[in-house]
């Protein structure tokens, strides 16, 4: 495999975003040192503020008991119920259904997120609003609209999907729809932010060429800028899909029929071998999607 340049999985980073040439980072020795020392000091301060005694790292008596029982099963995940009762669907079918519901919830949230995120992403790009003629009042109105789109994107991103789930739990009960909606709000915000950054960083020549041909502004944006960012945008969307799978699994802790629910119930029943099966299923599902999206990135991300 050819070495690929560092891929930015670090949140919200398309790979093509402007990272500085490494030489400029090499030159900035003083600043790096300052930030590193500052981070270390802040971390030390943080541990004085947190309830983190070193004794907290050692399991207590019951902790050891659970740990022994739990890790003893690590290499022998359950293939059948530990406590089978007649009439239940086969265990592996149940695991597969958990995986399927997790994927469906993630897909449901992502469809909303992609729809809203691409519209907001277009509207959040400065190219969508910039240098248009018109009376002064109209131009300042555009500026206000642009600013409010950016603020909306920031606000959508700043509340975690599980907190949205808590809010919707209160508003209309936690149903698959409210979970998908909860998932989609911060994801739409993140997609919009990344899409608009991609559009802003895209070279303008194709759009300018269209302008010379007399294209309208909308045409310029859609046919001059969007095609250039599409490969990156698709690859990034796939990466977010993988994150959505993790979030959808966790939504199960609130009672939705995803892997989180199965995992939680098996844990409280002390069926540790079943817990391992769910953990492996969750990890496997995420890794398969990751390989899939890595394949896309390898092919398309420049």
């Amino acid at each position: 495999m050819a070495p690929e340049p560092p891929r930015s999985e670090a949140h919200g980073r398309p790979r093509r975003a402007p990272l500085p040439p490494s030489s400029s980072l090499v030159r900035n020795v003083g600043r790096r040192l300052l930030v590193t020392v500052g981070l270390a000091l802040l971390a030390l301060l943080a541990f004085t503020q947190l309830d983190t005694p070193l004794s907290g790292l050692v399991p207590g008596e019951s902790g050891w008991r659970i740990a022994r029982a739990f890790f003893a099963q690590a290499l022998s995940p359950a293939l059948d119920y530990e406590d089978p009762s007649p009439g239940y669907r086969p265990f592996l079918v149940k695991v597969a259904l958990g995986v399927w519901h997790t994927i469906l919830l993630a897909a449901g949230g992502m469809t909303l997120a992609i729809a809203v995120g691409s519209v907001l992403g277009l509207m959040g790009a400065s190219a969508f609003w910039e240098d248009r003629e018109g009376p002064r009042a109209l131009r300042s109105l555009r500026l206000v609209l642009f600013a409010s789109v950016r603020v909306a994107i920031a606000l959508m991103r700043s509340v975690h999907e599980l907190l949205w789930a808590v809010v919707f739990l209160a508003a209309f009960g936690l149903t698959p729809f409210s979970a998908a909606l909860a998932l989609s709000i911060p994801y739409a915000g993140t997609l919009a932010k990344v899409f608009s950054e991609m559009l802003d960083e895209e070279p303008r020549q194709p759009a300018l060429a269209l302008r010379q041909l007399g294209a309208s502004r909308r045409c310029e944006l859609v046919f001059g800028l969007v095609p250039g960012v599409l490969p990156n945008a698709v690859a990034y969307t796939f990466y977010r899909f993988e994150c959505a799978l993790r979030s959808a699994a966790v939504m199960g802790f609130f009672g939705l029929p995803t892997l989180g629910l199965d995992l939680k119930l098996a844990w409280f029943d002390l069926h540790y071998a079943e817990v391992w099966t769910y953990l492996y299923a969750l990890a496997l599902m995420v890794v398969v999607f990751e390989l899939w999206s890595a394949g896309l990135r390898r092919r398309f991300v420049v």
Partner: peptide, 9 residues
């Protein structure tokens, strides 16, 4: 949280 005693760890 099930394995370790209650703290922020």
């Amino acid at each position: 949280m099930a394995l370790l005693p209650y703290s922020a760890w």
